[in-house]
Write a protein that binds this DNA or RNA. Structure first.
Length: 267
DNA sequence: ATGACTAGGTAGCCTAGA
């Protein structure tokens, strides 16, 4: 089973790139972030002939997440536990899909707030978002030593985990995306029982998932690893490999992010 | 210190992204 995550930076502006990715990579599941489309504007009909169904939750202009899956998507959830009504910013979607061997797998597409700046009100909201995600996964029995079913969370976390994940650790020290507090909060989420699947496959530095559009950052490989696939214990124990697919960042009119892909055997 | 790109919504080119 292949599961991918990709911050697409507008699904309508890049519907052809999503289509190309589905055709060329044939993932079983593609988790999208920053779709920037209301549900009524999401091009679900483009993916149907390719054999994919879609669950999405979006809004105009900003945010928006989706699950694109070869198998039907069931038990869709789009709010944190304990939420009073729908969140204004559409950043979270869960669904249950079936693996090629017919087993249920819980998947989640998440778009963690950027935080804007360390002194912005958006910054504590970013940290709170990560904690609420952890509370939701715990409340649903999806993390810990004996989770209810395999879980793969994919998304743009807007945090680089360590020095290998930033182009210049000295320049980035203490900055947004790489502050101690952000990294500690992300670590706390992982300590609930989630594994950074890419790091199961590679300990190499300088492998990034995002490059700024400006200053030829991609050509110069000045990027960050801020997009992750996370597996709970049941998912991680069947992981074959995970990698960053750099190629789509070089396609015409690309997203500033590139996909991360995990391949599971016997999931 | 600032801006460098890009998309979306709107008709203010500005907000937001990272």
């Amino acid at each position: 089973m292949h599961i991918a995550t990709w911050n697409i930076n507008s699904v309508r502006a890049r519907v052809d790139l999503v289509e190309r990715f589905l055709r060329e990579r044939s993932p079983d599941v593609l988790l999208l972030q920053e779709t920037k489309a209301k549900d009524s504007e999401f091009p679900i009909e483009t993916f149907l002939p390719l054999g994919y169904s879609t669950a999405r939750t979006g809004q105009a202009s900003y945010n928006g997440v989706a699950i694109i899956s070869r198998s039907p998507i069931e038990d869709v959830e789009t709010e944190f536990v304990g939420s009073e009504g729908p969140a204004e910013q559409r950043r979270l979607i869960f669904g249950t899909v079936k693996s090629p061997s017919g087993r249920p797998v819980r998947v989640c597409s998440v778009y963690v707030p950027n935080g804007k700046a360390l002194d912005s009100p958006a910054y504590p909201e970013k940290l709170a978002f990560l904690r609420r995600l952890g509370e939701t996964l715990s409340a649903r029995g999806l993390v810990g030593d004996s989770p209810l079913m395999p879980l793969v969370v994919g998304g743009d976390f807007n945090i680089a985990r360590d020095a290998r994940d930033v182009f210049d650790p000295v320049q980035m020290a203490g900055k947004l995306h790489f502050s101690e507090e952000e990294r500690t909060t992300f670590d706390a989420l992982l300590s609930l029982g989630l594994v950074d699947l890419f790091r199961e496959s590679s300990s190499e530095a300088g492998l990034f998932s995002w490059w700024d559009y400006r200053m030829q950052a991609f050509r110069r490989n000045r990027g960050l690893r801020i997009d992750y696939l996370l597996g709970n214990r049941l998912a991680t124990q069947t992981l074959d490999r995970a990698h960053i697919d750099r190629e789509p960042r070089g396609w015409t009119r690309p997203s500033d992010h590139t996909p991360v892909i995990a391949e599971f055997t016997n999931l």
